[in-house]
Amino acid sequence: MRNVYLITLFVCVALASIFGLRGTTFTRPPMDVFPEWAFPGMKYQPKLRPQGASTFFADGRADRVPPAHTVARGMLRDDDQLYLGKDDAGGWVKGFPAKLSVDRAFIEHGRERYTIYCAPCHSELGDGNGITKRYGMGATPTYHDDRLRNMAEGEIYNTITNGKNTMLSYADKLAPDERWAVIAYMRALQRAHQGKPADVSDPAARQTLGIQ
């Protein structure tokens, strides 16, 4: 009987050393406790998941692009000001499209989006010295020159939507109204850069800044 217990102990130790402890790093696909052959169609149902693979479509993707020259219901973008940054005459829009209300919440939203998507290159201050400059993105311009201060909002919108030279498009990351919010925040940065002590009107803020 003692031998049986010894053999059991040995087998346990051997198995434990094969299976290892919880949390060890491994690269082969995880084991299925309820395998697919025993419970077919539960874990992997015949449905397509976002960014998943498909054996049906020729390019192997589950995500489809709408066919050319079609518009999904409710997705018609017929407001050229809002969606293209162009006015009726076909020039770049000056100011913001009438449909948007530029208020504090709008600019705050713009600040958040700017910090995520633009600051890595254009820097939090908009001076073009974001962290990527150190790694070789030398062409990033500063916003604080007259060319960009006077540039029509519509043209900046177009740069965000379609990119320009080495800056690629951000249309997949920012919805149209978010792009306008980012522009509003860019304008706030440009204004702040030219700020003078006399511009600060809030007495409490004057005190913290040490302005007499």
Binding site: F19, R22, G23, T25, F26, T27, P29, P30, M31, V33
Partner: peptide
């Protein structure tokens, strides 16, 4: 209980 739960089967999965 130790080996047949996701705490063992999944934790640590780091594919190449």
């Amino acid at each position: 209980t130790y080996y047949l739960t996701p705490k063992y089967t999944r934790v640590g999965y780091a594919p190449v």
